[in-house]
Design a protein around this nucleic acid. Structure first.
Lengths: 245, 245
DNA sequence: GAGTGGTCTAGACCACTTC
DNA sequence: AAGTGGTCTAGACCACTCT
């Protein structure tokens, strides 16, 4: 028998169906990663057209609860393990604990984008060392990061190499005698671009967190890093000391 | 004459249309807030069905570029003025500069939600003072915030009143002799819930930034505040001092 | 081959806004 | 009344996955 919808309600059919699916998900009817009812299953169950069934499922997809796979079905999104990026994460580089698996996409010379040039005190188009990489979390890409480093700091050093060695590029900079002052971070959120969706294997248009970090050493900017991460997978932790009385 | 689409392309018609609209927007063909072509206009222009025209427009809506208004049309979203929340924003309370227009939605006693109880060292359901408010930015609601303050700190003080007075609740706490130690902030992003979309006047499902701040004074948590803001309108600024050698 | 989602069409009725 | 977006139907063809 067909499950009944309140067709007189203001709440459209597709939302009512989505509400029921959401409730079932919340109740634990589906294991993480489990397949949700197919479009045709919903058509039969609620006696609606395929478009309506699709719309209901797309609500869940849009909310980040589900994900569709062409030819396979709709699946409950496995909540990605939440990764906390805490504000003291730069303290750990000598300890060598910050070793998320990294996939290097590009390392080399290239022109600096306008937005980044400003932060580095350069002019748009100036050449810098570009380091583009992707961090994995339990085998899945979760974060992409692009760093821009002025040539006078990076050129001819391990910083311009694929593998900059233990402790990463910050350790190399310190070995050059640079002393870090501070890191400024600008946090924003938006929907992923199509390219980012591909890169991070995100469904459709899901939200991402974007962090633009400028590292300062000896009073000058020495690196700008733009990181884009699956918003569902990250919590950014910051601890702000109270101003002193 | 109908504008031609590449029907042989892998890129679906609705995306091609969306791409062209996006390009026109980028080129500045539409003023901020201006009306975009209507669904029927796109039907005629590209000789597609209404569903396809709709889909194209909904791509722009989904990306946060446009917004539909029932019975009126699709409009380019005015980029909301970006508000920067910097990490030193708590230093300004005596200066009285932190006076964004505020709309108080609720102030009173209420049970603390489980997630917040933990941070305050309380048990879920314990009563606390709840302060629910909405901040306006150029007349538009841009940020909602709910604070939870333990009763022993807030009950019977201006902190439990609608208007806590100049400098806000932090100033009142200091007057009680509390000395602030630090503020811990957890930043996440996600799509707005339906309720949040109503509260912040956001179209459909747009991304929001969520900041959960725990304020510590004299070694104990004295306030938890959950803020939800239109991601398009905010940049969060944090400055992290480098660890000292 | 059967089942799945992705795209598209041509129509319909409704609710809202504007004139 | 005319134009707009919001919902819904019944069908179609395609691409992908699985067995």
């Amino acid at each position: 028998m067909a499950e009944r919808l309140n067709r007189a309600s203001d709440r459209p059919a597709y939302r009512q169906i989505a509400d029921r699916l959401r409730a079932e998900v919340a109740r634990g009817d589906f294991a993480p990663g489990a397949q949700l009812p197919s479009e045709s299953a919903l058509e039969a169950r609620f006696k609606v057209s395929r478009v309506t069934a699709r719309r209901a499922l797309s609500v869940l997809v849009n909310d980040g609860l589900a994900q569709s796979e062409h030819g396979r079905g709709y699946f409950l999104r496995t909540p990605p393990p939440v990764q906390r990026l805490s504000s003291d994460r730069f303290d750990s580089r000598d300890a060598g604990t910050e070793d998320a698996p990294v996939e290097v996409l590009f390392v080399g010379r290239g022109p600096v984008p306008a937005k980044m040039a400003e932060r580095l005190g350069l002019v748009a188009g100036d050449d810098v060392i570009v380091r583009n990489r992707r961090y994995l979390l339990e085998g899945r890409p979760a974060r992409s990061a692009v760093s821009y480093i002025p040539l006078d700091i990076a050129a001819g050093t391990p910083i311009a190499e694929e593998d900059p060695g233990p402790g990463g590029i910050y350790a190399r900079m310190e070995e050059q005698g640079l002393t870090f002052d501070k890191y400024d971070e600008e946090v924003t959120a938006r929907v992923a671009t199509e390219e980012e969706s591909r890169l991070l294997l995100l469904p459709g248009s899901t939200p991402v967190l974007q962090v633009v970090r400028t590292a300062f050493a000896d009073g000058r900017p020495v690196e700008v890093c733009e990181a884009v991460m699956d918003a569902a997978a990250f919590v950014l932790d910051y601890s702000l000391p109270a101003r002193r009385s």
